[in-house]
Design a protein around this nucleic acid. Structure first.
Lengths: 159, 159
DNA sequence: GGCATTTTTGCATTCTTATTCAAAACTAAA
DNA sequence: TTTAGTTTTGAATAAGAATGCAAAAATGCC
C-alpha cells in the first residue's frame, strides 16, 4: 500500500534523525506531517521495521534503527543457533523489471548478499553483489510482491 | 553492593545466551538462580545495563545487550549533536590500585579509550590503550567509586 | 559504635506498548 | 464487477515496563 510505505519511510527518517523517546511522541510528529494512524498501528510499524527501544546515556530511552542496533553477524545469540540480521548497512530497495536492487552502505553489499543467500528461499535464484549494490535475481514466476516478502525476512523493510 | 553486581552479571549472561522476551521471563530465571527481586528492580537493572528490547525475526521481541545493539560511533543521531556509545567491544572492568583496567574485544581498546577521553571528566587524567586493554588513570584524589561512576557514563557498567 | 549520606529496593501506580477482535480496504483472478 | 483471500487498521484491552515515594540497607566518616 502506498500510504503505508511512505509512512514507514517517515518513521525511519524520524527515528534516525531525532531523539524519539516514546511512540506517542513519534505519533505526534507523524500526525503533524499528515499521517493519520493510531498507536496500535505505530506499534506494528515499529515491529516491522525492527526498531528497538534502548536506554540512552541520559537517563531516558531512545528508539533506534536496527542498522544502529544490530551489526551484521553479531546479534542475539541463542542456545543452539545463531541469528543473523542483515540490518546493518542496508539503505534501500528498488526494482528494475523483475529484479530487486538493494542499496547498502559502502562495503556492506557482500555481507548482506551473503545473508540473503544463506536464507535463500526458492523465490531467489541468486544474488550479485558489488560494493554497495546487490542485484537479487528472482526465480521465473516470482513477482515483486513475493520477492519483497521474501527479502523482508532478512531486511528491515516493509513487506 | 556485592549481591547487585552478581545479579547484573547474571542478567548480562542470560541476555547474551538466551532468548529473553520479557522481564517477567528473566525474572523467573533469576529467581530460579536464587536472586530475589521484583520487576521494578529488574527494570532498573536493565536500564543501567543499557539492555534494549528489539523485535526479532520471528514475530516476537528479544532483549539484547548494548554491545549487540549499538556499534561504536554509529548510534542515535540527534538534531545537533551525535551521541557515541562505547558499548561495542566492552568486556569488563577491574581495578589495580587507583587505576581502572578496562578489557575489550581485540582492536576495540583504542576506540573505547577515545570515547572515554572524549567525554573525559576532571576525574580522569588520561588513558593508555593497547589492543584489548585500557588503563584509565584517575586524577589524584579520585577513588574507585568516583572513577567507576564516571566511567559508567560511557560504558555499560553498574555504577 | 553512631550519625549523615548515598544507594538499593519494593509497593503501588502510572505510563507505555502489544495484541485481540472485528471491520474495512485492498488484491487477484475469474 | 463479483468473489475469495489477504492485508491493514482502529477501538478496546491486555500485557509489559517504568517510576514516585518511602523504607531499608549499605557506606563513609568521625
Amino acid at each position: 500500500m502506498k500510504d503505508k510505505s511512505n509512512r514507514l519511510k517517515s518513521i525511519r527518517k524520524y527515528v534516525s534523525e531525532q531523539k524519539i523517546s516514546s511512540q506517542e511522541e513519534l505519533l505526534q510528529l507523524l500526525s503533524d506531517e499528515g499521517f493519520i494512524l493510531t498507536q496500535a498501528t505505530l506499534s506494528r510499524d515499529l515491529k516491522q521495521l525492527k526498531i528497538a527501544k534502548m536506554p540512552d546515556y541520559e537517563g531516558g530511552y531512545i528508539y533506534v534503527l536496527p542498522e544502529e542496533s544490530s551489526p551484521l553477524g553479531k546479534t542475539a545469540r541463542m542456545k543452539t543457533q545463531e541469528i543473523h540480521f542483515a540490518a546493518t548497512g542496508f539503505i534501500s530497495i528498488d526494482f528494475c523489471g523483475p529484479f530487486a536492487v538493494v542499496k547498502t552502505k559502502p562495503a556492506f553489499a557482500g555481507g548482506i548478499a551473503a545473508e540473503i543467500d544463506r536464507r535463500s528461499s526458492k523465490n531467489i535464484l541468486g544474488t550479485i553483489a558489488g560494493d554497495d549494490t546487490i542485484l537479487v535475481i528472482p526465480r521465473e514466476g516470482t513477482d515483486r510482491r513475493k520477492l519483497l516478502r521474501t527479502l523482508a525476512e532478512v531486511l528491515p523493510i516493509n513487506h
